[in-house]
Amino acid sequence: MVRAALASKKIGQGPVPGAVYVPAASVVAASLFAVLPIVAENGWFPDCGFLMLIGWRLRRTDAWPSWWAAPLGLLNDLFAGNPLGLSVTVWTFSMLVLDLLDRRTIWRDYWIEWALATLFVLLYESAQWLVAAWMGARVPFLFMLPPIFISVAAFPVAAWFVGRIDSWRLGRR
């Protein structure tokens, strides 16, 4: 699909330069949301980088080679101040699981994609919670429910952005 689109030579219709790197760049940009000057009492904000990552990977199998998730995760850890390795592990693991799932799924629709995204958000937030507990900050899991709900609700927004960016980078207006 992408290869065919990248090869198109129509004037004004082709992909933007560096279209191959746009997905990864948009994930880094979403990770940079952590730089926003919000001083919050609790961690309710969704992890935008992760939502974009899942959104891209569900839209395209070949958004990036799956190992790119590791350096992208490292950047996210550094920006957000997570313990180093948390996003590296969870993001790369998610890519591998989705690679395996792609071999099994016959068909997909929006609901299945949202359900998959919910599972991955659950995985990510649980990992965050567990690592925090191991580092001496064990909070009740109940505190994690609002961020999980907000992230799940925010996924369609991320998927919409992914769709817009994707059609822009491939020159399909």
């Binding site: 080679p65 799956s66 190992w67 998730a69 590791a70 350096p71 995760g73 490292l74 313990p83 180093l84 390795g85 948390l86 996003s87 590296v88 592990t89 969870v90 993001w91 790369t92 693991f93 890519m95 591998l96 690679d99 690592v131 191991w134 580092m135």
Partner: peptide, 27 residues
């Protein structure tokens, strides 16, 4: 290409786990 990307992803996962273990053990 796909196979090596898969191997690289598994390597990335292993590196991530090691990094995480180190971060937890000595922040």
């Amino acid at each position: 290409g796909l196979f090596f990307s898969f191997i690289a992803a598994i390597a990335g996962l292993a590196i991530g786990l090691i990094l995480l273990a180190l971060s937890i053990a000595s922040p």
